[in-house]
Structure formats: C-alpha cells, structure tokens
Amino acid sequence: MTDKTFQKYKLVIDQWFVNGFNGTMAYKEFYPKAKRADDSFSKIQRIPEVQEYIKQKEDEAKKALRTTHEVLLEELENWAYSDITETLLLTPDQVKELPPEVRRLITKYETTTRRIGSGEQAISETTVKLSFVSKEKAMEMIHKHTGFYEKDNEQKGNIVTETREERDRRIEELIQKRNAAD
C-alpha cells in the first residue's frame, strides 16, 4: 500500500469516528462511486496499518475522556450506591447547587408551580420532580465489567458436539430406558 493510499484510508477512518461509526458512509465520503462501500470499508479495516491507526485513535479518545476501568467503575459505583434522599424537597436553585456527582445521576428534571388561594393571601408552591439513572442497570454494568457473569457465560459456551451415530445411539438408549420404565 502506498503512503498516499494509506493517508486516504486514514481520512476514511477519521470520518468513521466523526459520523457515529457508519463505515459505508465514511467510505462513500472519499470514494463516492464505490458500488460496495460496506465491503470496501470492511476490507480496509482488516489492513494491519489501518487497524493500528484505529487503535491509536481509540487510545487518544480514551485519554481525552479519561475512560479507564477505574473511572468507569467509580462512576457506576456512584450510580449504584447513590442516595436520592439528598434531593428530597429541594428547590430548583438547590438542585443546581448539588455536587456534580449527584447531578450526573439526574436523567429528567421537571418543575411545576401552582398557586394556592387567591388575592394577596395566595401562595405559590413549586414542586421539583427528578428522575434518576437506574440502579439495577448500574449493578448489571458493574457485574459485566468485573466478570461477575463469566462463570455463567462459560457454562453456556460448553457446547457438546457429537457425530450423527453417537446422537442416534444416545436417542436409542433413551427410548429403551423409557420403554423399560413403561
């Protein structure tokens, strides 16, 4: 592969990162006449130099976003063990003053204001409704990330392969056992 070709492939990969990982669209951006852009993109992804470039881009993104196992597990732990009682009866201004690690748990925020009474004696009451990230989802993600389900996955992966003759013999034995029990 020439350096010129590699530079063009790098542009395709850059576009792939920018467009949300749509390989076909990334390839067509630089090769608009391509008939099988999906196959062509798949082929360039398998080139060792391109794979190395993709890995480099992923590492740069991880570094920029501080995406490490430790940081991810810290955030998931924050989700899983958060205490929503810290947010009960808060005003909108008090919600804004919450620490960032608590605010990140909020997925939906609504305020409702209603007037009680009339005239000069009327009072306004503002209710804040908050929705939070799922604790169950956080626990599931922690378990997946730490390999908690690994044993179950290994058990599911143990597929027994047998020849047709072995299967027929096993079926015959089961039929004989059933008939003997009758």
Rank of each mutant, 00 (worst) to 15 (best):
E74Q: 15
P92C: 09
T87V: 08
T91A: 14
V71Q: 12
P92Q: 11
T87R: 00
A80P: 03
S82C: 07
L98Y: 03
H69C: 01
N78P: 04
L89E: 14
L73G: 07
L90W: 06
E70S: 10
W79A: 02
T85P: 02
Q94N: 03
P92T: 10
E70T: 15
T87K: 03
T91L: 09
L90D: 04
L89R: 12
N78L: 07
P99Q: 02
E77F: 09
E70Q: 14
E101I: 01
V95S: 07
E86R: 09
Y81L: 10
L76C: 05
L72W: 02
E97I: 00
N78Q: 12
H69Q: 13
T87F: 06
L76F: 08
P99R: 01
K96V: 08
L76Q: 06
L76A: 03
L76R: 04
L88K: 11
E101P: 00
Y81F: 15
H69P: 05
N78M: 06
S82Q: 05
A80S: 13
P100Y: 00
V95A: 08
L90H: 05
L89N: 15
P99G: 02
E74K: 15
E74R: 15
L89Y: 14
V95Q: 08
T85W: 03
D83T: 03
K96A: 15
K96T: 06
K96W: 02
Q94M: 08
K96R: 15
S82L: 03
T91Q: 08
L72V: 11
H69S: 11
H69G: 13
V95G: 09
L72K: 11
I84H: 12
I84W: 11
D83P: 04
T85Q: 10
L98G: 01
E101H: 13
D93K: 11
L73K: 06
K96M: 13
Q94R: 07
T87W: 01
L89A: 08
L88R: 10
L90Q: 06
Y81C: 07
D93S: 12
L89H: 12
E70L: 07
I84D: 11
T87E: 05
E75I: 09
L88C: 05
A80M: 09
E97Y: 00
T85K: 15
E70M: 05
E77S: 10
D83K: 06
I84N: 12
A80Q: 14
L76W: 04
P100C: 00
I84L: 09
E77D: 10
L89P: 00
E74M: 13
W79G: 01
H69W: 05
